[in-house]
Structure formats: C-alpha cells, structure tokens
Design a protein around this nucleic acid. Sequence first.
DNA 1: TGAAATTCTGGGAGCGCTCCCATATATGAG
DNA 2: CTCATATATGGGAGCGCTCCCAGAATTTCA
Lengths: 347, 347
Amino acid sequence: MKLEDIAKKVGVSRSTVSRVINNQPYVGERTRQRVMKVIEQEQFQPDPAARALVTGRTEIIGVAIPQTTNVFFGDNSYFPMLLQGIAETTIKRDYAMLLWLGQSLEERNGFSERVSKNRQPDGLIIASVTENDPLFSRLITMKRTFVMVETPPRFDEIVNYVTIDNVRASEQVVEHLASVGYRRIATITGQLNIRDGTDRLQGFKNGMEKVGLPVDPDLIYPGQFSREYGYMGMKHLLQFKPDAVICGGDTVAIGAIDAIHEAGLKVPDDVAIVGFDDLDVAVQSDPPLTTIRHSVQRVGEVAAQLLIDLIEGKVQAPHHIVLPTELVVRQSSDYNALKEVMYPIGD
Amino acid sequence: MKLEDIAKKVGVSRSTVSRVINNQPYVGERTRQRVMKVIEQEQFQPDPAARALVTGRTEIIGVAIPQTTNVFFGDNSYFPMLLQGIAETTIKRDYAMLLWLGQSLEERNGFSERVSKNRQPDGLIIASVTENDPLFSRLITMKRTFVMVETPPRFDEIVNYVTIDNVRASEQVVEHLASVGYRRIATITGQLNIRDGTDRLQGFKNGMEKVGLPVDPDLIYPGQFSREYGYMGMKHLLQFKPDAVICGGDTVAIGAIDAIHEAGLKVPDDVAIVGFDDLDVAVQSDPPLTTIRHSVQRVGEVAAQLLIDLIEGKVQAPHHIVLPTELVVRQSSDYNALKEVMYPIGD
DNA sequence: TGAAATTCTGGGAGCGCTCCCATATATGAG
DNA sequence: CTCATATATGGGAGCGCTCCCAGAATTTCA
C-alpha cells in the first residue's frame, strides 16, 4: 500500500495525502478527516526510503561506542544508562537509533570507517573517544553533524558536546576530604587518553593546591576505568600509605576496595575511598561509596536533544552543554572511622 | 557526489558503475579497475535511501528490548552482552543495527506500535517478550520477519527463535544437587510470563521427579529476574528450611545470598545456591556461584545470523536453534561444606 | 568464414515519496 | 460586483539508485 493508493481510495491527489501525513496546512478540514480515516484503517505508513530520498533525512541518529568488548558489558553500567537516556529522547522526538559497538582494539580503524561511511543516520552521538581516535578526525573532516558525550580531546571550540564539569567535581572531592581531615590523598585515575580521565586528574591537582596540600607524584596512579585497574592501582599505592584515595570511577573504587580488603585493611577505617559517577555499584558496594553523582542517563537525553536540534536547524553549532554534578557522601569516606595510627610506624 | 557523477568521470554509464559497486559480472577487467579507482579517490558511497527504495531492503536489522529501565541497565549484564553478540554479526555481514529500548511498563503498547510500524529494518530481533506482549502478536499479524532470543510464548512452530535448552539445564542442576546429597531443594523462579522463566521451573520439577524427590509447592517461590526478588524470595523460603535453592538467574542468586547472610547463615554451609546464566557476577559473587553457563553473546550472534539468512532467503522460516549449556560447579553448592544439622531441630 | 553464443556496455523506466508551480475555489475589502 | 488575497487541490518533475532490455563487441565452434 502506498500513498497513491490511499489518494485513489479517498478520491484526492497524492499531494493532499502527503500534506495530511506531514501535518501541513492548506487542506480542508473535511478532506483531512477523510484522508486520516483511510490512513487509519489501512494502517498506512509512508515508505521511509522514498521519503529519505527526497528529503535527504532519515530521522535516524547514530550512536557510536568504539569501546572494547569488556568495557561495554563488564562491570560497567555506564553505556547501558547512556543508551537508555538517548532512547528516551529519540522516542520523544520520533527518531530511531542506530547503534555501533566497537569490537576490539585492533580494528579501531575499521570501526571508524564503518561508522563514518555509513550515511544512514542524520547525525551521530559518539562516546569515549580517545585522543587520536580516527573516528573523531574523520567526522570533522567529513563535516558530519555529531555530538560528543564528553569533552572532546581537541578542537573543543568547534565540536558539539554535552558533559559534566569533571574538573570542578574532582576539586570538590578533594576539598571535602581535606575539610574533614584527610591529608595523604591519592588518586587512581581513569584512562588518561580520554578527557573524563585527564579532567578528573586535573581537578584532583587543582583541589590539592587549593587546600594547600602537596601534589605528590607517588600518590597518583595512572589507571583505566575498570575494577582491575582499581585493584592494581591500590596495591601499588598502599606502600605510600595514603589515608584517602580518589578513584577515576566507581568501578575503579570497587577494585581499590578489593585490594584494601586483601591487604587486611578496612574502608574507611584505614583508607577512605571515593568513586565517581554514582553508578548502581556505588550504593551496593561495601561500604557504600562516597562519589560524584551525575546522571549519565540525563547526559544521553540531552545529547540526543542537542543532536536532533542541530539536525533540524533549531540551534547553531558549535554548542556546549555542561551538566551539574553533586557530591554524595557515604560511608567509604567517613573520617570518624579513620584510625589514629593507620599504619605501623616505620613500616 | 552521486553514482552518475562517477560514471561521467570515468567515461562509462551509470549501469557499469552500479555493476562494479555491487560486484556483479559482465564488466571488463580494465573498466572495473578504472571505476574502482575513481570510487576510491572520491570516497564515494551510494545513497542508502535510493538503493533501499528500489531494492526494498535497507540492510538494517532492528533489535527490540521491551524491558523496563532498571532491568536493562541494572545489575544485569544480559542485554549488553546480547547486543554485543548481535553487533558482532551485523558488522560481519555488513548490516547496521537499529535499537529500541522500552521505557516503562505503561507504554508497552506504544512501544510495540512504534517498533512494529517502523519499516526501516529488514527484520527484527526481539528479546524478553511476555506472554501477551502486543509486539509479539502484532509482528505475526503483519507477517514481519523476526527472530526471538528465547522460546516464544506461543506459536512455537511458526516463530523463528534461538534459545538454550532451559528445561534440560535446570534438570541437570537438580540432578547434580541431588547426586551430591542435597534433599530439600527449593527454587526462586524468574518471571513466569517469560518462557525462560517457566521452562526453568519446568526443568526444576522434571528434575525433582527424575531423582525421586517430592515437588513441594512451599519450596517454589515465583519471582522475577532481579536481585530484589532473589532477596525477597529467599527471605520467604528460609522458613521452609531448604538445603539448596536454585535461582532463575544469577542476579536472583545474588539477592538470595544477601538474604541468607542477613539471616546470619552461610553459603553453602547452611544453604547451597545455584544461579543461571553465568554472568560476570557469578564469579565475582561471594562465594562464587554454581550456575549454568551459556553464552548470551553467542545467542545474539546466532540470532543475528539467522535473521539475516532469513532476510536474504538463505534459509526458510520457521527455523529453531537450540544452543548448548554447561553446568559450572563452584563453591556456592559445595556439599562438603554443608553442616550436618543445618537448623536447630524443632525450630 | 559465418552464425551462434557469450561477454560487455548503455539508457529507459520506475521505486514512492516531497516539492514546486498551476489552477480552482472561497473570503474579504473597497 | 470587481479585484486582490487567502485557502485548497492537483499533477509534473525529480531525488539517486537498480533492474531490464537492447544492442555492440568479442569469443566459440562447426
């Protein structure tokens, strides 16, 4: 069943049916009703391909997650939440969502080619782009419409993005820890080729300076956003006897706690731990994590809104949106629990 | 840049360029080379809409997950893994993947309408369909090509699906538990309006009969696939003093363990716990879970393969695929740890 | 050597829509 | 009542491809 058949059935022209479908003016009220009735009873849906061919738009947005397998479906609910947020908006705005997941590191290049060459979506949302990701430069060169869900690694000024104020949030964490009495504050970072990682580290350093504590390189462990790295990082840091460790993400924090427990120590009694993101695991963790709350889902929603607005010409590029964060204090950084002498003196 | 421009540039006709792009025969080797070279240097990609309009195919498959929010991104890595598997295949076969996520229960109907009416994908993969899900019947009525990733609630014979042998796997669990000495075996089921849920329960009952144990209704708790339900279920079951509990899923098992610990009891010393699915949490759990391993990712891969084969007419519908499962015994069902007297006699 | 078979190439038609312009009818101002 | 203006409807053109058929060039074989 096509548009023309509906027209014939109602006894009007293609154009009139098209106008009704697209909610355009200049259709008599009676005619509109008759057309709508037939469309309804025939369950007619215009062919998206034909429509796309002439309008040049598909009403599909693409989402590219060039991450390796385990990051996507591992202990990390970040991406599912992001997708949920994006889905929310696409439904609301009547778009569909095309998803690309990266497979393994080896084929980063293939991934970026596959994504960038596909002309089906009207625009893209891309997540977790590393500094020299080919996808990033490619999209810029091709002048495609896209929105990032973190601060871009370069070209901040010309790229659209939705992010949170990672620097400020990390500063806040340091300020909080310092204000309740922690002094040897360490950090296990996230990936440092992603802005979320570097910005959080920057915030850590800024915060330390602000509160007048020294930034000791020994107390900075460059990690990644995973439980494993949290574990490894903490094992390494223990020798330097931090009294608090700020982790690049909640899963990192969980890993750090694993290592602390393994060493026979307690959180927060021996070491305070702070996460970032306030994922589900933050509450489920034992003890519950002090962390930075920000709604990943909301980032997804807003990113999709921005993208669709850009596509529809409702806003001009470049457009930058920074969403608020909130420090959530839970047991993992309870200073009252901190033992006076944390480690045997002299080791 | 369009196909015709390439043709002009090379000095051949549209048809020839089209043949080259689609790898068709009857193009001279020299001509083919020349065309390819220009396509390469112009980075030409044919317009998917135009192509779809004439071929009637978009090379997009749709994935519909009509689940509520928290099931999708909660403590459950099932869907991310499924997506990863589907993505693997779509990349291999050069398709793209359109994703729909359900939002909340209230709009089940809206969801199914949105998904079924969208004509963009050539076929669909649908997950976690409940018995009277409107999407299910709708797709059947519309005669759309789709593959389910579990046994369908009805019309088994005409619907395509990829699944695992839930019944047999559960039987196996019971047989294992019985063989090592457990006697009061209980179960906390998954959702019973999903086949995965009912089949696992059926397997439980079959297994009990096979090994000659009574099927006591008190020992069957109808739950859902979540930690919460595991917790509630276990709390309820404790009064009936089971020595082992088979859970509908690993997350359910985690919840059950929570309840056991809360009651001051130990796993497996007081109660053995068995999960299902062998998700990441199964190993991370304390103690690690005995469970049924089956690759969710593999189910996704195979489902996508089947769907694309159906779309391309390489296989005939209906097509049913049952993937193997494997019993993985870990500490949560270690009979040696079971105390002789598990509960004070007489309560 | 010639006719048939095979390989190559080109161009028309048409996929199902939207957009633009032409025309028809209704509405209002002077 | 006339002309301008707003409202309503129809039909042609064309979006960028693929598919089909016609015809040219080449090969095969008696």
